[in-house]
């Protein structure tokens, strides 16, 4: 293999791994946005909780699969509580008010975690070892394969859920037209609750998958949340496909940018690309392009 090709392959592996995580976080944003037109800035905290609770359970001697299940369940409960206590009472408030509420929730969850679980960084073991695998001269960690595999499975499961179950269709219907859905007998409040639960689940899964690579910490969700939001916007808000493409694209821009142009400016490059896309396509790559109702 020519070295330049191996180098490129290495950048691609690295970009797709980060991109898959961004995609999972972005999907969480999209889900809640679809059901409620709320951007949930506490999404990053779901990611953090997934990782931190997994570590907590592991440190109490619980097996990895059980710890993962526990962490996902606990995060989903947090997501449901957030919707019930803080979003539902003000569902008809304006968008900025809702944004501030979710930001407040994020600060609260970070504070709560730092008080109860401490401020240390914690390692979570990789699911299947740390022996790098070689592929055409480039290397990839088994954990990266886990990330890619689980992300693909989650995407498939969501697709099936939204297109082949009554519940999923009800969520879709609500996102298209809340009033019509309500008239058709959809319990809109329940749909909202469900979307927060699902979104917390996605966040927790992302947090658990990436914890072995980055270690986990009470503030680890801040940056991942922001990148997930950027990915969701890049792809087009509310579009599932958009969230996935946006996430992968963001990961690739970062790794190729760092590899070929400048590692100092790789984050800036990601945002420059997003701005450029928005200037040309104001609804993102796959956003709804319909005219607004007047």
């Amino acid at each position: 293999m020519p070295p330049a090709f191996v180098e490129l392959l290495q950048f691609l592996f690295s970009g797709i791994t980060s991109g898959a995580i961004y995609a999972l976080v972005a999907l969480g944003f999209a889900l809640i946005y679809n059901a409620s037109h709320v951007i949930n800035f506490a999404q990053g905290e779901f990611v953090m909780l997934g990782g931190m609770i997994t570590w907590l359970l592991l440190s109490h001697g619980i097996d990895l699969p059980l710890a993962i299940a526990g962490a996902v369940a606990a995060t989903v409960v947090v997501g449901l509580a957030l919707e019930k206590l803080a979003i539902e009472p003000v569902r008809d408030a304006n968008v900025v008010t809702l944004i501030i509420i979710t930001i407040g929730a994020g600060i609260f969850l970070r504070g709560l975690t730092s008080v109860t679980l401490g401020k240390d960084l914690h390692a979570v073991p990789a699911f299947s070892g740390n022996e790098p695998l070689e592929l055409l001269g480039a290397t990839i960690m088994p954990q990266s394969l886990w990330i890619l595999g689980v992300t693909a499975a989650v995407v498939l499961a969501l697709h099936l859920f939204f297109h082949f179950t009554i519940l999923g269709k009800a969520i879709l219907a609500t996102s298209h037209n809340r009033l019509a859905a309500r008239l058709m007998g959809v319990n809109v409040n329940f749909v909202l609750l469900l979307s927060f639960g699902l979104s917390a689940l996605l966040g927790a899964v992302a947090g658990i998958l990436i914890a072995p690579i980055t270690a986990t910490h009470f503030e680890v969700g801040i940056m991942l949340g922001l990148k997930g939001f950027a990915a969701a916007i890049l792809g087009g808000l509310g579009s599932g496909l958009g969230a996935i493409v946006g996430g992968l694209l963001l990961g690739l821009i970062e790794s190729l940018g760092a590899g070929y142009i400048s590692s100092d400016y790789k984050d800036a490059m990601a945002f420059v690309v997003i701005l450029g896309v928005l200037f040309l396509m104001p609804q993102g790559l796959f956003g709804k392009r319909g005219t607004e109702r007047v």
Partner: peptide
Amino acid sequence: ASYEHMILGLIMMAVMIFMP
């Protein structure tokens, strides 16, 4: 001290919920 952020988050949420 360490409860600062928890309280700040709670106040932000409470004001927005009760005084949107």
